[in-house]
Design a protein around this nucleic acid. Structure first.
Length: 221
DNA sequence: AAATAGTCCAACCGCTTCAAT
DNA sequence: AATTGAAGCGGTTGGACTATT
């Protein structure tokens, strides 16, 4: 796994490479990843540098097992968001999307195994956490002036099973996110997830607020 | 002690989205 | 409107480590 035909180094990072990358980010900050390899003296591709920083070198990254609270939060968020690992990780301080994804895959495997081994009590728990569900696709990370959202179209969501709708209905009385509350099966969870707050559980406003701020900033309202 | 199987996680790859031109 | 390059994301892989036989 070391090196490639293009001459860019691959595989595990050395201590020296980590130090070079850390130094670069400490001086110049995150971003401009395409400049990092050349200017930091790293024989790595920009994506590799970004990944290494975000998943391993970034300060405050938590190591070790997930706590009960984190697992509980992860299950709730996954129920709401599906495999949107970066969004889920954003609600778990110190955890990276890669951590969450890896943990979830392991967790899923264990759940499935226990499901196969024990078809009685655990079955309901397994189904409540891993069964297929309609996934809510978040609005774009930011909106350009030419965004389809601002031009009468909303996200084409066949990929994630969300009905296409118009910007009018999106911004009007039929707020798309209200449908999040329509799932009767999940009402108990939703009530707690969205509005409980304070105890570390999901607060819908915490998700929507940054998106709204971004939106208002972009359209300069 | 050696061989094999299973698990975990760091890293890579391909794709999508976005912004700039 | 089309093109292009950078950034970001999720799926997948492969190697290191651990447990079991």
């Amino acid at each position: 796994m070391e090196g490639s035909s293009s001459g860019v180094r691959k595989g595990a990072w050395s201590k020296i490479e980590d130090d070079l990358l850390k130094t670069w980010v400490q001086i110049y900050g995150e971003g401009k990843w395409h400049l990092v390899p050349q200017r930091a003296g790293l024989n790595r591709c920009s994506k590799s540098c970004r990944m290494r920083w975000l998943n391993y070198l970034k300060p405050n990254i938590k190591r070790g097992d997930f706590s009960e609270d984190e697992i509980d939060m992860m299950i709730r968020l996954h129920k709401l968001l599906g495999n949107r690992w970066s969004l889920i990780a954003g609600r778990l301080p110190g955890r990276t999307s890669n951590d969450v994804k890896n943990y979830w895959n392991t967790y899923m495997r264990r759940k499935v195994q226990s499901h196969n081994n024990d078809n009685n009590v655990k079955q309901q728990e397994v189904e409540s956490t891993v069964k297929p569900h309609e996934v809510i696709k978040p609005v774009p990370r930011s909106l350009s002036k030419t965004s389809s959202l601002l031009q009468g179209k909303f996200i084409s969501s066949s990929k994630v099973g969300v009905r296409e709708t118009s910007a009018g209905s999106l911004l009007g009385s039929e707020n798309w996110w209200e449908t999040l509350l329509d799932d009767k099966e999940d009402n108990a969870c939703n009530n707690k997830c969205f509005f409980d707050g304070g105890d570390g559980s999901l607060d819908l406003w915490d998700i929507l607020f940054p998106l709204i701020v971004t939106f208002l900033h972009k359209v300069k309202l």
